[in-house]
Amino acid sequence: MKCKPLLVAVCLLFGVFAQASEQPELKISVGDWPPYLSEDLQHNGVIAHLISDLLADEGYRVSFQFLPWPRAYSSAAAGRFDATAVWMHKNDREADFFFSAPLLDEQFVFFHLKSLPFGWRSFADLTGMKLGGGLKYSYGPDFDAFLAEGKVKIERVSSDQQNFDKLLKERVVLYPQEMHVGYASLRSHFSAAEQARITHHPKPLLINRSYLMLPKSLAGSPALLERFNKRLQLYRDSGRYQRYFDDLKQGKYQPEPPTSPASKE
C-alpha cells in the first residue's frame, strides 16, 4: 500500500510528458534584438515569451531558432520554419508571407534628463537643440527630412551606452530611441542613480508596427494565422498583452545573474 502514492505520482508524471509530446511543435526563426528577442534573456525576451504563451494556449509547443536576420527570413520563406518574428511590413514581403495582426508597437521617444524639462509638439520646437543619435540610423522619413534641414545638430555614435553617457554629461540635450530598447540599455550599463536621472517625453517621435510572418509556401499558414490573430486579440482585450510589457519595464526579462561560486571553507 505504501507504494501506491509513488505509483500515482509516476503515472501523473508520464501523463504530463505524454501530453507535451502530443502537442504539435511550431518552429519559428528569429533574429537577435534585445530586449525583445535574445537567447541571453529570460524566456528569450518579451516577444518570444508572448508568442510562446499565445501559441501554447492554442495547443502548440514553440521552439525558436536564432539566426542572422537575412537567414531567418529566407529560411522561413522557403517553408523550413512555420513562422518568423518580428518584422516591419513592406510590400515586397507580401510575396513570401502572410502578416499577422500587429504584434509589437515600437515607440520611439526623446530621452532627456529630468533636471532639464522638455516639451514638444512639432519638430520646430527642437530648433537649436543638440541631439544624440545612432550611426546610419533612420528615425522615419519625416524626422530624417527635418534633420536634413540643419535646424538641429545631431551627433551620431555607435551605441546606446555612448549616447546615454553623453546625455548624463549634458553633452546632448535629447536622445531619440525606441522606448523599451532605451530603458533596457540603461538597466544594462548604468547605475540605479544614473538611471533615475533620465526620463522620456511621452509624445512618440515615431511608431513602427512589427508582425509575425507566416510563409505562403506552407498550406497550413492561413489557418494558423487566423488562430494566432484571434488569440492575440483576446490577450489585448483581457489586458494580458500589456502585462508582458509592464514586466519588461520592470526588468523582468533581464538575464539571470551568474551564480556565485561557493566560498571555500
Rank of each mutant, 00 (worst) to 15 (best):
D247A: 15
K2W: 04
V46I: 08
F146V: 14
G251T: 10
Y241L: 14
L186F: 05
D82S: 09
Q42N: 05
P215L: 05
H49N: 12
S122D: 06
S217Q: 13
F108L: 11
V16C: 09
A193N: 10
S74K: 02
W69Q: 11
P222G: 10
T259I: 15
S260H: 05
Y235M: 14
A9M: 12
L234H: 07
N229W: 01
G15T: 10
V152I: 15
L113D: 02
F111W: 02
V172Q: 05
S158E: 13
D82Q: 06
Q19E: 13
K114R: 15
C3L: 13
Q162C: 01
A148K: 15
N91V: 08
G45R: 04
Q107R: 14
K153E: 08
P117A: 08
G45V: 09
N229Y: 08
P215I: 06
I28S: 05
L248V: 10
F110S: 05
E58K: 14
R209N: 05
E39T: 12
A83Q: 03
R71A: 03
V10G: 00
L168S: 07
S217W: 04
L205M: 08
P5D: 00
L12P: 02
K114Q: 13
Y183H: 07
G182P: 00
S38M: 07
E106V: 15
P176Y: 06
L186Q: 02
G132T: 07
N208L: 14
S263M: 05
I51A: 09
M213E: 00
D105L: 12
V16M: 06
W69R: 08
Q42S: 10
Y36E: 02
Y183E: 09
F164Q: 06
L218M: 11
D165I: 01
K249V: 03
L126Y: 01
E256F: 04
F108P: 06
M88N: 11
V172T: 10
F110W: 02
E265A: 09
I198T: 06
K2N: 07
G79H: 04
N229I: 13
W120E: 12
L131Q: 02
N44C: 07
L147T: 10
E256L: 14
L206C: 06
R231L: 03
S158H: 15
K230D: 06
M1E: 01
P202E: 02
H189W: 10
K203H: 01
D82L: 04
K249W: 09
Y60G: 12
L167K: 09
M1K: 05
Y137H: 13
D144Q: 02
V46D: 00
F64Q: 01
Y139I: 15
F228P: 08
R243F: 03
P202C: 06
A148N: 14
K151C: 02
P261G: 09
F143E: 00
I198Q: 09
Q19Y: 15
R227C: 03
P70R: 10
M129Q: 04
K151D: 01
H200C: 06
